[in-house]
Design a protein around this nucleic acid. Structure first.
Lengths: 258, 258
DNA sequence: CGCATCCTTGAAGATGCTCAATTTCCGTGG
DNA sequence: CCACGGAAATTGAGCATCTTCAAGGATGCG
């Protein structure tokens, strides 16, 4: 039962079992016993990679699966009646997309690859029946959905009360944190999305994002050159962002005006 | 087995069984068989009503239950390190609050009553074990969480790309729609939140909200006097809002620039 | 009846947007 | 390999929307 053999087979089929996937501490498998993992594995389909700009699904299409990003990255966006797009999320390896479609059985957003990207397809009907059998799977699914709600709440807060500088700083911190969790450098990374995408997501004009990048660069907070970013002063960047985004840390000191 | 008797008993105990609750087509019970409903009922605790400004929970507190609003209304808000609050949602009867706390077991937000408000408390550990036994309950829980993600996405879109007029119009339409679903008038209702709350939620200054109300009033779109609102021209209000908020309707015509 | 809170209205000022020109980059084809 | 063309990014100047500051009016509760 050499894991060597397994790996070879996996690569051949463009398949990596959840148990062997480096993302299984972030993704759906978190907290599952290894025998249960096999049952999850069995319902997951690994699809051929998407090319840059290719769509995973379009809004309006019927929902029948959620997807976990395996490598690369995606953006999800809504399209208004006038054809303007609104980007609502960027998705890195280990993150799920499509959870917003469970409610109506129809995708409210489109999902598009920002670079060559591979995903795991998880048919929702099977996931649903499996998770009544595997409480740990149900729990992790609920956790991940709850986490997405939290993320959206942070984005809403940024949009509602932060300045352009603060929004961009918070965005970079969010990326940095997520890269760290995935074993990548939290200080040096590449932006897979364009300035326009960042601007759209942050509710700013493209030119503003460009200017703020330059300003942060000149202030010595980061080195940015085209897609490549290096964060030079995390502490000061956090200060810029207004609120530290390290999740639960600031939630402890709860003070309220009743 | 008169339902009369049941009702009397219920009122006496300040208890209305889910099966008798007018909100059961919106709330967690949706889609459940009546024998299953009893099991859900059994784990739910009806608490004494909250007075205006009273908190249901504070951010930072341990999470052990989600809540369904039975009557009245709540706001949920985050508190930044500097003590500024950011309102992230207003919650009407039939809506769940606390779903964002599942991920970490700690409430990331505080929940406060906007008026006299009663809620059903649903202990999460019991809900979790029950929903592995009742697939229809699991399904509805997932649906409601998915729906919350969708709502947040709409709010993010409004914050990112709408003007002050459009945001307020969209906000009123959202309230109108939700009141209709609950059997209240969609055209005449009372705002349980202050101008300041609305402004905070919409990412605007209090004064801006006040001015926009006056402008919409003068344009003949609505009649507003203090807390009381009457929508006079829904169609034109929709036009103001930029995007119709009638959920899935505009999602059909999916056009995309690949 | 009076105080406190909430709301309204006005004027000045700032942040970020639009329009426009230029530069840089990258892929394509010669 | 280099040249070319288009897309993406940068930079500047003027302008609009919304915010801030300030004062005044309405409402409701003691």
């Amino acid at each position: 039962m050499s894991s060597e053999t397994k790996t070879v087979v996996s690569l051949k089929r463009i398949k990596v079992a959840c148990g062997d996937c480096s993302l299984n501490t972030l993704c759906l498998p978190l907290g599952m016993a290894s025998d249960d993992l096999g049952r999850l594995d069995a319902i997951i389909e690994r699809k051929r990679p998407l090319a840059r700009a290719e769509h995973l699904y379009h809004c309006g299409e019927r929902f029948d699966a959620i997807y976990a990003v395996r490598s690369g990255s995606l953006k999800t966006y809504a399209t208004s009646e006038h054809g303007e797009e609104q980007i609502l999320g960027f998705h890195l390896p280990g993150e799920l997309v499509g959870l917003d479609a469970i409610a109506d059985g129809v995708h409210p957003l489109s999902a598009q690859a920002l670079e060559t990207t591979s995903v795991c397809e998880i048919p929702f009907d099977k996931l649903e029946s499996l998770s009544v059998q595997l409480p740990s799977l149900q729990r992790q699914l609920l956790r991940l959905m709850s986490h997405e709600i939290q993320d959206d709440q942070k984005t809403m807060t940024a949009l509602a009360q932060k300045s352009a500088e603060e929004r961009l700083a918070a965005f970079l911190i969010s990326l940095s944190t997520r890269f760290r969790q995935r074993g990548f450098s939290p200080t040096r990374f590449n932006l897979s999305m364009s300035r326009g995408d960042i601007a759209n997501y942050l509710g700013l004009a493209l030119e503003t994002v460009s200017r703020v990048f330059t300003r942060l660069h000149n202030d010595g907070l980061l080195r940015v050159e085209r897609k490549s970013v290096e964060l030079l002063d995390q502490d000061r960047l956090y200060a810029y962002a207004g609120t530290p985004c390290t999740t639960a840390s600031q939630l402890q000191n709860s003070r309220h005006s009743s």
